[in-house]
Simulated assay, not measured.
Amino acid sequence: MRKEYDFSKAQRGPAVASPGKTRITIMLDDDLIEFFRAKAEAQGTGYQTMINATLRATVAEEQGHSSENEPLTVAALRRVLREELHS
């Protein structure tokens, strides 16, 4: 990097927001976090994504929606194949 750059008047830009998502702070039990982290690592996905999917499935079940009516996604197909291969 050049020594002539002057960052003394630089400002940090705003964080890029994810559309349709809200950042929150939530306290979860350690054993739950470890469960989702281990499961996510085994499936090759993020543990926060798994927690979100679990919450979404619970809400859908509570509202009387069945996940069987939803279109099959690549992520869902991979999950099912991994479950079948491991059993």
Rank of each mutant, 00 (worst) to 15 (best):
S18H: 03
S18F: 09
P19K: 15
T22L: 14
R23S: 12
I24W: 09
I24T: 06
I24H: 08
I24G: 01
I24A: 05
T25D: 06
T25G: 13
M27I: 08
M27N: 06
M27H: 10
L28E: 11
D29G: 12
D31H: 03
L32Y: 08
L32T: 11
L32W: 07
L32K: 01
I33T: 12
I33A: 00
E34P: 00
E34A: 13
F35T: 14
F35C: 02
F36Q: 02
F36M: 11
F36P: 00
R37L: 00
R37M: 05
R37A: 06
A38F: 04
A38P: 00
K39S: 13
K39E: 08
K39I: 02
A40S: 14
A40I: 00
A40R: 06
Q43T: 02
Q43S: 11
G44K: 07
T45M: 13
T45C: 14
G46T: 12
T49N: 09
M50V: 15
M50F: 05
M50I: 10
M50R: 13
M50A: 09
I51D: 01
T54F: 10
T54V: 11
L55G: 10
R56C: 05
R56Y: 11
T58C: 03
T58L: 14
V59K: 10
V59R: 13
Q63F: 02
Q63K: 14
Q63W: 04
Q63T: 06
Q63C: 12
G64V: 08
G64D: 06
G64F: 03
G64T: 07
